[in-house]
Design a protein around this nucleic acid. Structure first.
Lengths: 337, 337
DNA sequence: CTGTTAGCGCATTCAG
DNA sequence: CTGAATGCGCTAACAG
């Protein structure tokens, strides 16, 4: 790889002139002949500025770190894509960091990214205590995605879980469902609670019941399977619909329902949450609430760039995005035999 | 962020000494007192070596570029994880690059990665002509993943598609299937052809037929759906089994089958290829051939590091990994009514 | 055992 | 309009 010195030599000018030319700092005021010679030398040598050297001088690397629990979890790829697309368009490259939500790893990556002098960091689903994050991350700009905590210390991008769950429940009611069961997420999860509260409130608002049936799972497929099995086995009549706190549990529930030969959606309507890519691939295609993950990623990247450039009002930003009900084939009016 | 000079000043030694200490180049032969002072200074200043400066000097950045078609496609995340895990353990960070298999983007990324001075590049599913790649990539070490072409110019990691498809077909035969249909992939795809040939050969080897029924799709869910629909509608008896060239088409096929009220696996066995994460999530869970994607990613990373370190025999390496049949619930002996 | 110095490739003063 | 010189933070001779 050739350097700026090679170019300067070949063009018969100084490196300063080459530098100016390359960075467009010469505008109109540069001898046309000089320009031509430099241009030619660059082409012949296939010169490309060394961004490492550039970074050392400029104090910016045009790279950012993206810390994510696990890219293998179908919830994240689209979000990552949202981040990458936006950043790429703006000249930034992204370091992908999988942590399995292990605090040790998260912290280790925070250090590493800073040693690499990234210009900013996006933290997805990092639940480290605020003070720890702030201490470790020192003065690198960062924004959080999917951190559900009301902290005035962080920029946070998240989506309206209450609204989404309310919409889902409302939709089931509109379909004529009288008895709806909610299979909730992990008990101490902020997100799970928001969805559960919305479910309860919606039922109350529509005078369905003030004592809804709710079972607690922990967001995993197995929970959806097990709880649904128990539900079917313990009663003689099955409910009109089940609202699962996330798609994974809905997948488990569908498995149980199929094994018990309960037809979806004829006998029972099923609705999930997240609109993980799998939801559209299964049969019946799952009605669910789409989290605008691509936009969330994109928004996070956008906000981060503003932070880096310092073009955002002081005070941390909390961006709330709207989820959207995606109606597919796992829900319908109940067919009365 | 403090620099080596700050540390040297605070510890009352020269920067060279600090450098030696930090890089362990001092072994036993360094005054304990000096060590102590440096260590203290480092801790107090929360010093972390600037890897940019380090790279400028050492000519290595400890970063690699991972060029992938689309992280959103369920086929890739696990592979990416394999790459990232191995590289991370070895002190490297990875730049994630999505190209949508668009040549323009691929080339642009190749340039960008080199400007960033990555130590190596992993190219997943890049179909650019060999000479173009070689020209663009100049002298950065790289390895290809999922490039199905016998080129002696590249290091390539791939999996045995022929064997996998043969195993799948054989399994169906062992299950007692007499009539098996293959829904193949894109006609000019190397991978699709390997799978198709194996299917044909296996049927011939076991004297099932020398004129098997094969339908051509292009790896998409819609093809699986459409072709399966046509298949069911055009004949009065349904085949014993269908072997889809990939999981996505199997998902489409299952949808068609369910709509036509053909029971899986009682009436028909269905088998896919890839073992995309979705395969285990759907009902019935899909029997399929697992491509060892995690290992493929890991192997690619491993080989790349060896290339970077120059510790691999001359001559390009072609690593062939073994696929594995994963038996789940979409296949069974046919139930005779 | 430790300090001085040069140089990695580039951008940017400051002169001319 | 262009060139010489400086320094970003670090490592590696080379001295001492």
């Amino acid at each position: 790889m050739s350097t700026i010195t090679d170019v300067a030599k070949k063009a018969g000018v100084s490196i300063a002139t080459v530098s100016r030319y390359v960075n467009g700092k010469a505008d109109g005021n540069m001898n046309e002949e000089t320009k031509r010679k430099i241009d030619e030398a660059i082409r012949e040598l296939n010169y490309e500025p060394n961004s490492i050297a550039r970074s050392l001088k400029s104090k910016e690397t045009k790279t950012i770190g993206l810390v994510v629990p696990d890219i293998v979890n179908p919830f994240f790829p689209l979000m990552v894509r949202g981040v990458e697309d936006f950043l790429r368009e703006n000249g930034y490259s992204v370091f992908l960091c999988n942590t399995d939500q292990n605090s040790q790893e998260e912290l280790a990556y925070l250090k590493l990214l800073q040693a690499r002098k990234v210009d900013g960091i996006i933290l997805v689903g990092v639940d480290l205590p605020s003070d720890v994050v702030l201490e470790y991350i020192a003065d690198t700009p960062f924004v959080c995605l999917e951190r559900h905590e009301n902290t005035a210390e962080f920029d946070v991008i998240y989506s309206d879980n209450y609204q989404g769950a309310y919409d889902a429940t409302k939709y089931l009611i509109d379909l004529g469902a009288k008895e709806i069961v909610h299979i909730a997420g992990r008990e101490n999860s902020k997100v799970a609670n928001l969805r559960k509260q919305a479910f309860i409130q919606c039922l109350a608002d529509h005078e369905i019941t003030s004592d809804p049936s709710i079972l607690n799972g922990s967001f995993r497929l197995e929970d959806g399977y097990r709880l649904t099995m128990e539900l079917i086995e313990q009663r003689k009549n099955i409910p009109d619909a089940i609202f699962y706190a996330n798609d994974f549990m809905a997948f488990g529930g569908i498995r149980a329902l199929v094994e018990k030969e309960v037809r979806i959606p004829q006998d029972i309507s099923v609705i999930g949450y997240d609109d993980v890519i799998v939801a559209s691939l299964i049969t019946p295609a799952l009605t669910t609430v789409r989290q605008p993950v691509y936009e969330m990623g994109k928004n996070a990247a956008e906000l981060l760039l503003k932070r880096i450039q310092g073009t955002v009002e002081p005070g941390k930003q909390h961006v709330l995005l709207k989820p959207e009900l995606v109606i597919r084939n796992s829900t319908s009016m109940k067919v009365v035999q």
